[in-house]
Design a binder for these strands. Structure first.
Lengths: 130, 130
DNA sequence: TCAATAAAAGACTTATTGTATCTATAATAT
DNA sequence: ATATTATAGATACAATAAGTCTTTTATTGA
């Protein structure tokens, strides 16, 4: 079990967008180059973030991507779920009559992780940096 | 990102072994039938648990698998790591000079989950059941 | 209005991993 | 000896990840 590379790209791109001007967008070309990934692939990832309302895109000359207004609210969990989806990490296939106790424990564990990701905002990263 | 089915099989098999006699082993044939999976595949999974020291195998007639002595110490994390390995869930590929702050947050989050899995023992399940 | 720019979308390819099965080999009780 | 049972290796198939290519749509500057 592993997070996908797409999640890595998404998180780092978001961090780059935080550093960038909130007004003037930055092109996917440039964002892709920094991370050593193809622009089309990265744009595919960014489109998901747009649909999740975290960033906005501007097409045409001097277009690109920039953070949406509510940047202070964006958590790690938001970004991760936009990319990975929000299905449970563990799904019991066994056919019990009752509830699956194992599943319950796994869900609790997952929630611990999610809780931490929900409580850490992207903007926390920038403060640490300075 | 998801836990593999193998982990599901491993956890449920361990639970079945707890219910079983600690002396007389139970065959993979039977264990596989309960879960609707092929014996050869399940045995492959169980071999990993054997190597991790959680269960022991007895070959030959009336052979099979049974818990190893230290059954009270076996945690969810033990089983999961025996199957999934113990690599980090998140690996940053970006080439920073410094440490990756994102990676640090992800690691913290993962550790929250692991902590819960480490603190929950298999035997806890049995007590709940009664 | 037109040409250049840039994102969005869809079809497609390739690589990797998960999920098995089959066969052969080794160990053990009767 | 033989039937039984785990172990190991080779192999096959499916699903997902990761990425490319091409076309379409939207926007801007000249």
């Amino acid at each position: 079990m592993k997070f996908t590379k797409a999640t890595n790209y998404a998180l780092h791109t978001m961090l780059a967008l935080i550093d960038n001007s909130p007004v003037k967008p930055i092109g996917v070309q440039q964002l892709a180059e920094i991370q050593g990934v193809s622009p089309t692939y990265l744009s595919k990832i960014l489109t998901r973030l747009v649909k999740a309302g975290m960033i906005e895109s501007v097409s045409g000359v001097n277009g690109g991507y920039r953070l949406s207004r509510k940047k202070d609210d964006i958590t790690f969990l938001d970004i991760i779920q936009a990319i990975e989806g929000n299905a449970s990490l563990f799904e019991c296939n066994f056919v019990h009559g009752e509830e699956c106790l194992i599943q319950a424990v796994m869900k609790e564990a997952e929630e611990k992780m999610e809780s931490h990701l929900k409580n850490t905002k992207l903007t926390d990263m920038v403060q640490k940096k300075t």
